[in-house]
Amino acid sequence: MNSPGGSRNALVRWFLQPFDYAWMADFQNSRPTGRLIRWVMAVLTLNYGALAVVSLFSVDTSRSVVAIVWKAVMLVMVVVVAAAWITRPFPGRFGVVAFAVFADLGTASALLINPIADAILTCALFAVIGTFCTFFLSPRWLVAHLLFAVACTVAAAVATHGGADVDIASLIFRTNVVLLAIAGVPLTSHLLVTVLTEDARSSFLDPLTGLLNRRGLDADVDDVWLLGRDQDRCVAVLVVDIDRFKSINDRYGHEEGDAVIVRVAERLGSHLGEYGVLARTGGEEYLAVVSTSRLHIDALIHGVRRALRDSADSVSVTVSIGAAIVYWDSALWDQDVDIVTRATRVADSMMYEAKAAGGDRVVKSVL
């Protein structure tokens, strides 16, 4: 059973967790569904403007100059924002935060100029904004939105009670339903999305090194191949295996063996990470898929051994490296073959050749 302290710590971790706005924007802009989401946001934004127009025809609405001018201004801003959703890429941190703040303040202003009888119903619009915050904003911004929405709803309930002849039980019921929709649902959804996201990400990662595992590599590797082809760059698969790793475990123990695996992973990441994806695919085996220029590819591959070497290491290791290189003008690009699978098999075969020759070397093949 989880202790209250454990639940509290989990809640604190959720609240303080970093949110990668840049990754979110890149993800949305690289997927066909990203454009669909932007169209949905544009339609929802325009609907807010339509509601402002419809409210002008309500019998009890304020028709003061200030109210009419403000609704006209809001209508213009809504059209501009909706157009931005359609014509611009999915925004980064500033854009999504600015949109949430704009929507919150716009909804709050509607409470001030719409009929008091519609105040509680108007607060339900905060639920739509909360859904946006759930998926595209950090927990801290979500909580800020929820506090603002709850405060506005409570204020609307108090104003309704004081300005209209309304049954108190009915008012409490309606207010509670709206509060559940605007606060309970987004908060619960964000917690659930966070848990599912963490579980999903962890299923793609090797728990010891933090590198991708085989499943994670399969999910990310296509992007490297497509980038190489689109930009006329070379793509290479590298299989790296630590030489005589069993003797390290036998001599120094499994704890030191794990430390060696982690150290090699970190240095491989530093050397290869910016050029592609890297995974731990076996006990002491790593696989990298990289994309770079023809002039640089050989230096990158042969530089692996040098990147892993440090005279200060308590346990010195060497590696056997097999590499399969696909140049940008290779005929394989135009053939109906699984290039990734073929290159991986060749690189794996080259690694075993390097190991059979005594290790601590690179054996490569051009496809």
Rank of each mutant, 00 (worst) to 15 (best):
N2W: 10
P4Y: 02
G5T: 13
S7C: 11
N9W: 07
R13A: 10
W14P: 00
W14Y: 03
L16N: 15
D20R: 02
Y21T: 01
W23L: 09
D26W: 06
D26V: 03
S30N: 15
S30G: 11
T33R: 12
T33Y: 13
W39E: 14
M41C: 15
M41R: 05
V43S: 08
Y48N: 06
G49D: 01
L51H: 12
L56C: 13
S58E: 14
V59K: 09
D60V: 03
V69I: 14
W70E: 11
L75F: 14
V76C: 08
V78M: 08
V79R: 07
A83F: 12
G92E: 04
F94P: 03
G95L: 13
G95V: 11
V96N: 10
A100I: 07
L105Q: 12
L111H: 06
L111F: 06
N114D: 13
N114E: 06
P115E: 05
P115T: 01
D118E: 14
L125D: 07
A127L: 06
V128G: 10
G130H: 00
G130S: 01
G130A: 01
F132P: 09
F136L: 13
F136S: 10
L137E: 10
R140A: 15
W141T: 09
L142T: 12
V143R: 04
L147Q: 07
F148I: 10
V158L: 14
A159D: 13
H161E: 12
D167L: 03
F173G: 10
F173P: 04
R174S: 14
R174N: 14
A183D: 04
G184P: 01
S189W: 08
S189K: 04
S202V: 06
F204G: 04
L205C: 08
D206E: 08
L211N: 08
R214Y: 05
R215A: 11
R215G: 08
G216Y: 06
L217C: 02
A219F: 07
G228M: 08
D230P: 02
C234T: 00
C234F: 00
D243M: 05
K246H: 05
N249G: 02
Y252F: 13
H254K: 04
E256F: 04
G257E: 02
A259Q: 14
V262K: 09
R263G: 15
A265E: 00
A265D: 00
L268I: 06
E274N: 15
L278E: 00
L278Q: 00
G282R: 05
E285V: 01
S291D: 00
R305P: 00
S311A: 11
S314W: 05
S316W: 03
T318L: 05
I321F: 00
G322W: 03
G322S: 09
A323Q: 00
I325P: 00
S330R: 02
A331N: 09
W333F: 04
D338C: 03
A347L: 06
D348R: 02
A354Y: 03
K355A: 15
R361I: 07
V363G: 06
